[in-house]
């Protein structure tokens, strides 16, 4: 039943619902949210604050399992409601990259070490991890700041390092929660373009939670979440 089946989607969610609390205190944060993302596609997830965007993202990121519904990644069922069908932490390590609103770098590691550690915990040898970390930083234009600690980097540079870390293990899924919120519009657009580039070049499925409507032209698919309801939109129908 849980066997992988060939799928054209890298990410599939089937009617996932998240309910917090119970009885009188029950809150439905997300209801029957379904989404399909093909490899190489960049999805924008829009919606007002508190609409359930982050709940959806953390569910797909296997951090906060849904109350019901299924999550399938690369054709493999991963979560059936709250039931994990694989080792979530291990799966997350190998297949999912995260980028957050704030760069969320580990303060006691340098830029290159922040990228390197993601690969080392995935079993890559330290020299190989360091080599690839440097390549990623170079690719993202921050190679010259490799040995700087996060506190010595600007917000944009930190976010690029965070993107490098998200890409480190060749993930099939990249999840970004308002990655440009702390950046100016120019830097923000650069980061969004970077996601699109990575998705297209590496065939990953990328979901980006954003409020920034100025960069919508970069995304292949648009979804909007309102009051826990997920709906597919077009540029014309987006509110």
């Amino acid at each position: 039943m849980n066997k992988s089946v060939p799928s054209q989607y890298v990410i599939e969610t089937e009617a996932i619902t998240k309910i917090y609390g119970s009885g009188n205190t029950e809150v439905v944060a997300m209801r029957d949210a379904s989404m399909q993302v093909e490899p190489g596609k960049v999805v924008a997830l829009l919606g007002p604050s508190g609409s359930g965007k982050s709940t959806f993202l953390t569910a797909v990121g296997l951090i906060n399992p849904p109350t019901s519904g299924r999550i399938i990644i690369q054709g493999k069922p991963i979560l059936d409601g709250k039931n994990a069908l694989v080792n979530l932490r291990s799966f997350r390590r190998q297949h999912i990259g995260f980028v957050f609103q704030k760069s969320n770098l580990i303060p006691f590691l340098s830029a290159i070490e922040n990228v390197q550690v993601a690969m080392e915990i995935n079993g890559l040898s330290p020299p190989a991890a360091r080599k690839r970390a440097q390549e990623l930083l170079d690719y993202l234009g921050v190679g010259d700041r490799a040995n700087n600690s996060p506190s010595m980097l600007s917000g944009g540079q930190q976010q690029r390092v965070a993107v490098a870390r998200a890409l480190a293990n060749h993930p099939s899924v990249i999840l970004a929660d308002e990655p440009t919120a702390a950046l100016d519009s120019h830097r923000g657009r650069q980061v969004m373009e970077l996601f699109a580039q990575v998705a297209h070049e590496q065939g990953a499925g990328v979901i980006v939670v954003t409020h920034d409507h100025r960069s919508l032209d970069i995304f292949d698919i648009l979804y909007e979440m309102e009051d826990g309801i997920l709906q597919k939109k077009t540029r014309e129908t987006i509110s």
Binding site: G61, I63, R89, R92, R93, Q94, F108
Partner: peptide, 18 residues
């Protein structure tokens, strides 16, 4: 003091032994 970094490592999928 480093609980945030530990949470981050877990988010990245670091095994418990790390």
């Amino acid at each position: 003091d480093k609980i945030h970094s530990i949470a981050l490592l877990k988010l990245m999928g670091a095994p418990n032994y790390v």
